[in-house]
């Protein structure tokens, strides 16, 4: 993903909702997890994210590491205006620091087949 888009994603979040300290999306090796970041590995395949529910703590820098096994799925948190394509064969990292407790729905937004409409999950942010 182009750096320009990465920056735009983070800026959009801050401007729109102010829920996150910052967020960006990066492909393999470009921005590995920093030492203080919590790493959450997410396996993606038709038609499920594993884990389906991701629990995060407010203020904790986090990186979601996606590995798709079969398709270029999408990862989209509409309420936070975060999205990324998840091509198979790559590790896609989404860096974020949640600031506000709540439940944020995410979904696959690249049509991937008969179970696409059920391919979704939740990020639960707790204090």
């Amino acid at each position: 993903m182009a750096r320009r888009k990465i920056i735009a994603v983070g800026a959009g979040i801050l401007a729109a909702l102010g829920l996150l300290l910052g967020a960006n999306v990066a492909a393999r090796n470009s921005t590995p997890a920093a030492s203080q970041e919590t790493v959450v590995k997410v396996v993606v395949q038709r038609f499920v994210f594993t884990p389906t529910e991701i629990v995060l703590r407010t203020g904790q820098p986090t990186v979601l590491e996606f590995q798709s096994l079969d398709f270029t799925h999408g990862f989209n948190i509409p309420d936070l205006k975060i999205r990324a394509d998840l091509p198979p064969g790559q590790i896609i990292r989404v860096h974020l620091t949640p600031l506000k407790p709540g439940v944020y729905d995410f979904l696959c937004d690249n049509f991937c087949g008969a179970g696409h409409e059920q391919m979704n999950g939740k990020i639960i942010v707790k204090n």
């Binding site: 509409p78 309420d79 995410f106 979904l107 937004d109 696409h116 409409e117």
Partner: peptide
């Protein structure tokens, strides 16, 4: 338009 993006009821 963004009707319900979390249900994929939108066009990017």
């Amino acid at each position: 338009f963004d009707l319900v993006p979390k249900w994929d009821w939108a066009t990017r």
